[in-house]
Computed example of a mutant assay.
Amino acid sequence: MTTAFTADELTQIPWLPLERVPAGTNAIRSNRGVEVISYETCASTLRDLDYSTGLVELFEESGVDVQEFKEIASKSVNYVEGPDHARLRSALGTFFTPQKVQSMRSEVREWIEAALDATGEQTEIELVGDMIRDIPARVFSELLGVDAEKHAAFISRISEESVRIFEMDPELAGPSTAAWSELTRWVDELLEIHEPGTPDANVLDHMLAQKAMGKMSDEDIRVSLVTLLAASTDTTQILAGLMFTSFLDNPDQWQRLREDPSLVPSAVTEAARYRPGDAWIFRVATVDKEIAGVPVYAGDHVFALIGAAHRDPAVFTNPEIFDIGRTGERLPLNWGVGRHFCLGRMFAVMELEEMLRATSARWVTIEHSDPAAAREASYLDAGTSVHIRVTPAN
């Protein structure tokens, strides 16, 4: 069966497959590979050891023909399996802990409040430029142990540019190659000038401590820094923009949040479900098998369509409704599941929570500055600009 939707359409309407395939369809074959649609089938596919994360293939599909970048991808914690994956996951995971997240929460709140203070008495605000873009970059600067004033803008830009390989568009080969060249050069310069400090003061010192214990090599550290930097800010920025867009389109939920701030954590979870930043998570089959009765062959590209999975009526009650009090249902798949679950998820969630806490306390209402333009905007435009009009609380 060939799909009646394209990759471009999925980027604009991530849940489109549910409208185009028969109800109850779990997976289908398309001209680009296998499309996994239902929630449970997506989750089981992402956990399956027979599917690689396909990072090397992403470079090949994007026309980025630089062996160094492919080797970095092939040696990263996001790609390797077995004992090497367990070793790297353990070495890095002991830094990305709930305790580390909580230790940064008050500081993140201060950054957000300062960004909002800088808007003064404005009632017309562009959220991405005025607040959203800076916060994930500041967090990563802090985790990396570099000066945010000097490096945050670079970190935000290079993350946005380097992850465009996930678009698998050969027309972006030139810009993607340039971005990865700049990214690796910056990491090499950082490693050259870094002066070791207290273990766990930042992620680089943590990795140096892991090296001293024989758990990481110099190559592991370089590869990990490159891949962490590439993934550092872009996803969180897009999710934040989409989160506020969901509230703009559902003003009753904004009022509900203001009346009950304890809903902030469930609101972030619901926002990630309702408008995911990615339509799919990419995988590559390493053996012949099947998914929900659909034959899969070694080398096939497999797409876990999380945008559709998040609207699966077999899992979510009234999935088309944005309900910030939604509880007792499955977690969104934005950050993956299983062994390759995103190391930075807890930081992203914390940042989104603090953005909601600060803004909902300040603004009685939020609305689109230009509703007509908002209706015409592309789905992912929310990651680059969100123009709003606010009614201040005071």
Rank of each mutant, 00 (worst) to 15 (best):
G214E: 02
V223T: 14
A209Y: 11
V226G: 00
D218E: 15
L229A: 07
T227K: 03
L228A: 10
S232L: 07
I221P: 06
R222Q: 11
V223Y: 03
D220F: 13
D205T: 03
A212I: 02
S217A: 09
A230R: 11
A209D: 12
M207T: 07
V203G: 04
Q210H: 05
A230Q: 15
M213R: 15
I221T: 08
Q210P: 05
R222I: 03
M216L: 15
Q210T: 04
A230V: 04
L229W: 02
S232E: 03
L204G: 00
M207N: 06
A212K: 11
K211I: 00
A212M: 07
M213L: 14
Q210R: 15
M216V: 01
K215V: 01
L208W: 07
A231R: 05
M207K: 10
A212D: 11
D205H: 06
G214C: 09
L204T: 10
A230T: 13
K211T: 00
K211R: 15
V203P: 00
G214W: 13
V226P: 01
A231K: 03
T227L: 12
E219T: 14
V223E: 09
A231Q: 10
V226E: 00
L204W: 04
R222E: 11
L208K: 12
S232G: 14
S224L: 08
M213Q: 13
L225T: 12
K215T: 04
V203H: 00
T227P: 06
A212P: 01
I221A: 11
D220S: 10
H206I: 07
L228P: 01
R222K: 14
E219P: 01
D218M: 10
T227D: 08
L208Q: 12
G214Q: 06
A212E: 15
V226I: 13
L229V: 07
L208H: 11
T227A: 12
Q210V: 06
L228V: 06
Q210I: 06
V226H: 05
L204Y: 02
H206V: 07
Q210M: 15
E219M: 13
D218L: 15
V203T: 06
A230W: 00
K211H: 10
L225W: 10
A212W: 02
I221Y: 13
H206P: 03
T227Y: 02
R222T: 04
K215R: 15
S224T: 15
S224D: 05
S232C: 09
I221W: 14
H206Q: 11
S217Q: 11
A231M: 06
Q210W: 08
A231H: 08
K211Y: 01
E219H: 13
L208N: 08
A231I: 04
M207V: 12
M213D: 08
S217C: 13
A230F: 00
L225Q: 04
A209G: 03
S224A: 15
H206S: 14
K211F: 01
H206Y: 07
D205M: 06
L208E: 05
M216G: 05
